[in-house]
Simulated assay, not measured.
Amino acid sequence: MWFFYFLLPLLGLLRISLATSLNATLDLQDEVIERSMGYTTEPSRLVMYVQTFKTPKGEPLSLLPLLQHDTKVTHIILASIHLHDEPGEIRLNDDPFHAPTWDNIWEEVKTLQMNGVKVMGLLGGSAGGTFGHLNGTEREFYSYYHPLLSLIKKYNLDGLDVDIEEKVEISVPLRLINALRRDMGPNFIITMSPLASALTNALGQNLSGFSYFDLDAFATVPGSEEKLISWYNGMFYGGYARGPPFFQLIVAAGWDPQRIVMGVLDCSNDGQANGFVRIEKLQDTIRELRGMYEGFGGVAGWEYHDAGDE
């Protein structure tokens, strides 16, 4: 029964009703919501990506049902943060962080954090260009990095998911990750989101242009073996989440299963046509992986606004 408490909240999270979301109240923003089980004590991570901030009906999306329905979500990642050509021009999707469209979201973020949920930002993603801006001289790098750092601090983000889907040199993530660790300290969460195939071997299919094996070896605290990258939200889209073998292949390649989170699609409309795995099959896969690896890293869902729709 030890794995049941992970599977039950997973099912609740992925099947949450959009009608319930529409009826959610914002009156909870200044209230610590009582729950029977704390998020920070869950044995595995349950990560939810949020990129679309409207319901399928076009109405504003609330994050609070993730608390109200006791989904046991541990981390929420807001996507996507983009660095534009002008240093200091940084947008969450199409709008600056301070735009009125985000006012309710930032208030809800405070409530989530008060209840133990870690709220992070995704930097980069499928829209290219962000990491090209971080690939210059030291002066050029810091002209883009310092405004980003200021926003992370101002909006009290708990971490950053560095999602590199453009070809860059390994020095780009290394410089960024080291700077974040230096400036934000060891409690700041740094994750990355490669294709799952990029974790099977150094030559695995990859969107980033560098080896994640090499990056992870280099990205350590100077003078120690402590990893700077907290874990990897691997994109296990397609058949990769239809059973344990692909996760086993990654572990066999040398990765600690505690540092690998299985990223899946929450809805068939959220990615490639064959990328969606139904909850019943996903449940079987998680049950098997939890049986194989006591330290199974968890599951990440892309994305929240239509989670549970077919």
Rank of each mutant, 00 (worst) to 15 (best):
W106H: 06
G238H: 08
V251D: 06
E280H: 10
E226M: 10
E166N: 03
G271I: 00
L207S: 13
C267A: 11
M262D: 02
V251W: 04
M1S: 14
P186A: 14
S268W: 06
I170V: 14
Y304F: 15
D70Q: 15
K72L: 15
P96K: 11
L78V: 14
I229P: 02
N206R: 11
M37T: 13
L26D: 13
M235D: 01
G234D: 08
D284Q: 15
N156R: 14
G125E: 02
M292P: 00
A19M: 04
A217K: 15
L149A: 09
G223L: 07
N187A: 05
W302E: 00
L123K: 02
A253I: 07
P60N: 12
L151P: 06
F6L: 02
A196P: 03
E108Q: 14
Y142N: 13
I90S: 03
T25R: 09
L160R: 04
T101C: 12
E294V: 06
S36T: 13
G308E: 02
Y155P: 03
P245W: 05
L26N: 12
P43A: 04
L7H: 08
G124W: 04
P147I: 00
G301V: 15
V162W: 10
Q51W: 07
G239T: 03
T41A: 05
P65A: 09
D85M: 03
N135G: 04
D95A: 13
E140S: 12
L112Y: 00
L63K: 01
W106Y: 12
S211V: 10
N269W: 07
H75Y: 06
K281D: 04
D306P: 02
P9D: 02
H133W: 07
P60K: 12
A273Q: 11
T111K: 06
L11H: 14
M114W: 09
T130M: 05
M37S: 10
G124E: 03
F97N: 01
A79T: 06
W231C: 01
G124K: 07
F276N: 00
T101N: 10
L151F: 09
